[in-house]
Design a protein around this nucleic acid. Sequence first.
DNA 1: AATGATAGTGTATTACTGACACAAGAGTAA
DNA 2: TTACTCTTGTGTCAGTAATACACTATCATT
Lengths: 253, 253
Amino acid sequence: MLTKKELKEYCENARENYLPHISIDCVVFGFHEGLMKVLLLKVKNEGGWYLPGGFLLKPEPIEMAANRILKERTGLDEIFLQQFHVFGDPERSKEHFEMYKDLLPAKENWFTNRFLTIGYYALVDFCDVNPTPDQFSATCSWCDLNDLPEFKLDHALILKTALDTLRLQLNYQPIGYNLMPKEFTMPELQKLYETILDKKLDRRNFQRRMLGFGILNRLEKPRKGGAHKAPYLYSFDLENYKAALTEGFKGGW
Amino acid sequence: MLTKKELKEYCENARENYLPHISIDCVVFGFHEGLMKVLLLKVKNEGGWYLPGGFLLKPEPIEMAANRILKERTGLDEIFLQQFHVFGDPERSKEHFEMYKDLLPAKENWFTNRFLTIGYYALVDFCDVNPTPDQFSATCSWCDLNDLPEFKLDHALILKTALDTLRLQLNYQPIGYNLMPKEFTMPELQKLYETILDKKLDRRNFQRRMLGFGILNRLEKPRKGGAHKAPYLYSFDLENYKAALTEGFKGGW
DNA sequence: AATGATAGTGTATTACTGACACAAGAGTAA
DNA sequence: TTACTCTTGTGTCAGTAATACACTATCATT
């Protein structure tokens, strides 16, 4: 929560530069040590967590805004982003309304307005991210998808919708290029799928199917160093991967 | 295109009642005589066609706004609606900007603002629709999907995106309840699928697969009156249909 | 009663999915 | 060095779904 002074400054700036009534919230998925992670922010002097988000500059394309916001929170450029839903319940920002309504008159108070928020989800390589709080936040950090904190506003719903969308997309799009390091083993990739879907998959069938998609290159060298049989390393075949992204897998009719 | 007087009145009302910078555009699909149809509007004194659209009342949920807009254009309540994308290119309303910029000063000119538009597609029973122009339009009518006119703004893109989404959804959701009359024959339903997908399907395999979904009831009576063998009539099993809508078909992992 | 057009249905082939088991490699410890 | 353990790589078989294809049934018309 902002102090009155901070609020006032922020609102003046926001009214000047941002489109009113529209915000962007991003669900940033990462994958680390076999666990699915989401990037979250904890606001100063408030309980509850937020998704990284922000506003749209008046002349800015939406996707560019999402990229800008994520660049600020992660340090990353060129993030894989997918717009998935607009959340527009008139009551969705009620908490903010209650919190800020007494600090500034409605007319100049950015946060007592209604906001529609455009939901994006992002897939990123966990290790590349440098979580950076925004000016409202005390903390920006990865949270385990299995162990989520309390959310503010409707951010739990946004996260759930993103996850549902991701799971659905898994069925007709390749995924992983943005979540895995350049080189990885088949068991590691399987773990990613298992984590996203929250279920066990058969090792042999997973491999067969995955290879069947034709988006993987097996590298010559295996991964050394483990205490067991050295697994092969794979990388994505970018060309086929992108083709699969646009055309989708098989898919019925 | 509006006259100056009309524009002025409209803008005053709009500023008062609608959220700025946000619009809704609907792609209304219907199916008639074996052809896929889209509901379009032709504005007075302008070349080119628009999708039915409108704005969001300040306290109104998005979905309700889409319903309200479609109720006005079609006479229908309770339309099947699916939000599919937000279009936000800052240049997307350039045509409007050029058209209206000289009529009113920017400050009070609703139409020279930037608009993000939320795209919904709707599936309706062609025969139930009573196409009704809005106050800007001379004509509201069904157009054949294979024979589309010139569009204004980015409405060709919006339509294409809607169609792509619909085709994709065909693979994991039932469709047809909203597009077909209550009772229909298997060949008629097949024709719907063929029309949406723009490709021929095998009669026998289509039937087997469709019945396999378990969302159809075969009625006792056949359709009489044709010059040929009387086909069976089917209706959708609402309960199973809705279950399939939420759970999706099979779907991979 | 023969014709023409369309509807209903069965079957063989192939591809895919899911369940399962065994062999190979790499380190570890005797 | 050898046996052991853990993990990876791969083959097979059965059940299921997808594809391709051809015949019979029915109605209206002549």
